[in-house]
Write a protein that binds this DNA or RNA. Structure first.
Lengths: 351, 351
DNA sequence: GCTCCATTTTACAACGTTGAATGCTTGAAC
DNA sequence: GTTCAAGCATTCAACGTTGTAAAATGGAGC
């Protein structure tokens, strides 16, 4: 059995509370006593029992991260960033996979095991705006993404509209006029797809280019295979376009693959841009231009905001935070008037 | 403040222990009492305090998974599988990233916060065989991978040698004779690289094909960029080869990209195979043949073995378990005498 | 040598739960 | 109407820690 404060105290010849005082760096511990205790701690290999500490102190030093699936690269990279950000503050991360199912998402928030952590970073996919009031848990929640706004808890989101607009403008700047879209969601307004479409349309409007639904590929799911399928459909439709905006990188990769199979050259015949700046976009053939939506910033901000909220649960109104983005030009949009330089986006960290 | 057993008891008009009995499905609780208590539980929205339960019962219902980085797709998919497997048994997963650094790996094992979980699934990268005795923690450990054997704890590994041999044979069966390798580790014998190289050499020997170090690309790190770099080096070297075995999928993808850039057609000019069966291999251009090393089986077995060991820490000698593998033929090795069919590998779950 | 204060240490009571042991009901058997 | 044994419910003591308050120690001042 592991050593306890009492064991250490017995060996050091002091009371167990003194040992506790040493461990917690309390003032008023004589140096000689401290030395004696530390010796005993080392001798016994004592390690504090965090469960007991949690029970007593009321906090656990862990945070929960709930995401759809880690096998989706976006969420794997997000989780990676969250774990690193948490580690910097001495927190561990406990991960729940929801599969993007509304029911599981609700379950995660009401599960008693959420209380094994001090807070929840929650990236819903199945729940939507109509569920805003259901975003309630026994611990502070930081919401990620654009599925739900005004839920009453802190919310961090990327600038979907502005970033998608910038991506579209990046293509327009290459002289492309007929920009196909992959991954739109029929009738959606407020999700990632809807917002990015809005940015796309704004960019077109600003240049008086008519919106054409014929070059928009609707696709509910955003896996690579869906990008491929949507692109095949567009090709079969026989419509013309000179660029493709994948609403995420995975879709863009799938689309790009189909284009190449069909004999098109990227970027010469068709320029392609994605969204997310996944690691893999650096290694595709050609490398994929994309938008970095500020994933690291999202992770770090989420941890920071959550910690503040844990420390002070009633610390002011819920915050809506948008992260800075940046268009990352790579080979898939290389052109005559474009050397692949990065275009910084505006930073608006606390709107 | 959240409701406790005592609050529920007060509302239900019984002693708090009776409430505990109801929650834990103890026998000898009258139906009428049970109903009363359940009503009170619902009315108060009572949720058991898992921290207190852990302290009292000595187990937490969580397991720790320590991996190098989630942004490496292999580990993201492994973590995904582990979380799903754990969820089936009602366990949560707590993830630690070691960055593959030996020091961090040792730290994870000796950290007091490991005790926030009941066991550790540990995938070391920085530690090696010489550290076998250091694999010790306050909780049961299940070791994954091939960096360390005979550590005294349960160990689950893929059949690297046999699987790599099968992958090589898959290429040989296409009539390829000069199979380049990407990602070998100079002088390594026991790690993934060393074992897969052994499988490669065994396959060659069995067919009396001489081993040629000139078509082996050494590369310590296994990211996409490294696969690309190794392949560029091989091409510059001017050596001839008609197939490529990437010691993992990521390397193979990087290598394949460089080959295509250089004007080679895959699989016509060069067949390429990887290792790991990452999701993305299904979507590259061409789709990448690979070896499924049994990742889901690894995850499920790890959870099962760990649970057994948690329940019964002295339950017999440590086990060495190997998972079944299977060669997955895709477009990158499509040939005349090969329709891309899958070739099952032997199952040897309990050697 | 005694008092007094500051410093250091200790005792005690929580935190919310479960297991062991004990006490109280109830209905059936005598 | 007792007695007895289940069946049911309760009391008590942990689990290992930290905060509070009280006690001990020690050195300075008289």
């Amino acid at each position: 059995m592991a050593a306890t404060l009492h064991d250490v105290a017995r060996v050091a010849g002091v009371s167990f509370k003194t040992v506790s005082n040493v461990i917690n760096n309390h003032p008023h511990v004589r140096d000689s006593t401290r030395a004696k205790v530390e010796e005993a701690i080392a001798a016994l290999g004592y390690r504090p029992n965090l469960t007991a500490r949690s029970l007593r102190s009321g906090h656990t030093g862990a945070v929960t991260l709930a995401v759809p699936q880690l096998r989706l690269p976006y969420f794997a990279e997000l989780a990676d960033a969250v774990i690193d950000a948490a580690a910097k503050h001495g927190l561990v991360v406990l991960i729940e996979q929801t599969g993007g199912e509304r029911e599981r998402e609700l379950e995660v928030m009401s599960s008693p095991r959420l209380k094994m952590s001090d807070g929840l970073i929650f990236s819903p996919l199945g729940m939507g705006q109509e569920d805003a009031e259901l975003v309630k848990a026994d611990v502070p929640v930081v919401l990620l993404g654009e599925r739900i706004f005004s839920s009453g808890c802190d919310h961090i989101t990327m600038q979907n509209v502005a970033a998608a607009r910038a991506a579209t403008e990046h293509l327009l700047d290459l002289g492309r006029q007929r920009i196909a879209v992959i991954g739109a969601h029929e009738g959606e307004v407020i999700g990632s797809a809807g917002l990015r479409m809005r940015g796309y349309r704004e960019a077109l409007e600003a240049r008086n280019i008519p919106y054409d639904d014929a070059i928009v590929g609707y696709m509910w799911s955003w896996h690579r295979a869906n990008g491929a399928a949507a692109m095949r459909e567009l090709l079969e439709r026989g419509v013309e376009f000179d660029a493709v905006f994948g609403l995420n990188d995975t879709l863009a990769q799938g689309a790009m693959r189909v284009l190449q199979e069909a004999g098109y050259r990227v970027p010469d015949d068709l320029a392609v841009i994605g969204f997310d700046d996944l690691d893999e976009t650096r290694y595709s053939l050609p490398t994929l231009s994309t938008v970095d939506p500020g994933r690291d910033e999202i992770a770090e901000t989420a941890i920071r905001v959550l910690m503040e909220r844990i420390k002070n649960p009633d610390g002011g109104a819920p915050r809506e935070i948008e992260t800075a983005f940046r268009v990352v030009g790579r080979e898939s949009t290389l052109g005559r008037n474009n050397s692949g330089a990065n275009e910084p986006g505006p930073s608006d960290p606390n709107r």
